[in-house]
Design a protein around this nucleic acid. Sequence first.
RNA 1: GGGGUUGUAGCUCAACUGGACAGAGCGACGGUUUCCUAAACCGUAGGUUCCGGGUUCGAUUCCCGGCAGCCCCA
Length: 556
Amino acid sequence: MDLTEIVRGAFAGAFPGEDHSVVRVVPATDPKFGDYQCNDALKLAKRLRRNPREAAQAVAAALAGEGVFDKVEVAGPGFLNLTVSAKWLNERLAALAAAPKFGIPQTGAGKRVVIDYSSPNAAKQMHIGHIRSTVIGGAIDRIFRALGYDVVADNHLGDWGTQFGILIKGYRELLTDDERANLTVATLEKCYVLSAAKAKEEDGLWREECKRELVKLQQGDADNLALWKRFIDISIGEFERMYAKLGVKFDTYRGESYYNDMMPGVVEELVKAGLAVESEGALVVNLESEKLGVAIVRKSDGGYNYTTSDLACVKSRVAEYAPERIIYVTDARQQLHFRQWFSIAAKMGCTTTLVHVPFGLMSFQGKAISTREGNLIRLDELLEEAKRRALEIVKERGGDERLAEQIGYGAVKYSDLSHDPITDIDFSWDKALALEGNSGPYLQYAHARVRSLLAKAGGAPAERAFAVAEPSERRLALQLVEFPGAVVRAAEAYKPSVLADYLFQTAQLYSSFYQSTPVLKSEEPTRSSRLALCALFGDILRLGLSLLGIETPDHI
RNA sequence: GGGGUUGUAGCUCAACUGGACAGAGCGACGGUUUCCUAAACCGUAGGUUCCGGGUUCGAUUCCCGGCAGCCCCA
């Protein structure tokens, strides 16, 4: 049985009739306190105006009957320090090893969630500015799937707008036949730059032509629509090449264009509900009472903006998927925008939980990432450089290109995922491609070592029987038992960093154990138990890293 | 001007949402390889948790007031 449940039971026994749902058992902050601690007797004592130490004593007395603990102590003002029995720990390990997904609870079973992330602009190459949404969103996606959620991963592409008039005009008149035949995103990007430059010319003729092409596209002209479709398809093809490297996969690519026709209806609804009013020719929703300012839902020129398209989008998603939650992974600059339209959606009767997961800005060597600064490193370029650097090191050990990809890409992903998403990140090659310490390769290395050990033993033991004894294996064992909790906490906080941090700590404990405790050379039955512990560590590390989108080669 | 967010070791970050002596990585210094992968491990040094109040048995965490950086809105 779960420790928290046992301790709650003891609370209920000592103090019947009270609400003990807040009682929690957490790993001890210091090994000298034991294995676990519970600090809730203090809170209960305060509520009941009882002496806190006495309250803790009463719970301790109720716990004494449980066979689970070797030692139950009351310390300080009323902390409960718990030391579990070897029997309990061994059984717990065996249960974990046998459980599907190593005990990750299926709290999402029967629930659907839409996750909206990455969302690059079509006809442009992805750059380092896209890495955070993609990598963080991808990790949240996988973590929710692991918890049993039915996840719809949707890529809200920027696939509509004035740039397509410029592109279509440029495509027809500025590209060579060869470029048109072998169209790539790089070509489209170049085409846009050239055409946009011409649109700035004095006479304005080119600009007018571009506008005309845009209007034709918007009115459904077959040629322009086919061309637009081609641009989008080529873009998605290119993006998927990047996503394959990042271990990310989308269920749908519904860009802004998908919601176009729904926007007038949304605005009409807002007006009818008395939410949107006219102001200086535009239609706005006043959110001043919530300190959220004013949100424009239709501009004075009749055009719509993101607030409207996001409202249309949420309506469409709710109708189609009936999700329990919709999660948006975008940069922190958009917080106001999300708060605004979340508020409007609620006023329109949307009961689906809408979550914005904001992440901090990424800069490059102290400067904002921008075309103007000329530091818009392409994502492809970044990943290639990561691979190249990894290859240099991997070659010394006889590793190949495939391994270099796994290590290089893993380093890039981990350097992002190991931080709380809200932190601003200053990109540097050395930090992103660190191979030592708290890095992706450190974890991959720990994994490869344990695989190698198990291979030498002729594979993981078929019978997963545990008999932990040494302090180093006991510490590792206690940490492994926390795996499901780490996954749950990462999901609850929408922070893959919680899982990354857990995995790093676990790998550290394993490395320490590995250094100090012989496995293959130990005597039976200790040997089998230690092998089982190693196997469990290896499996949990592999699963955990896979949730972060990081591959785990068996040999490095 | 209004709002958001961040401020923790020289640097980059943690701290399981109010717990015990604030922990890791990098960097510095020292040590470990006839032994399961040294991309590793062990040790030493390094802190007024931005500042000032408050609540509490207890505050990096919550509240109030400042200061600074970044961002959004006007």
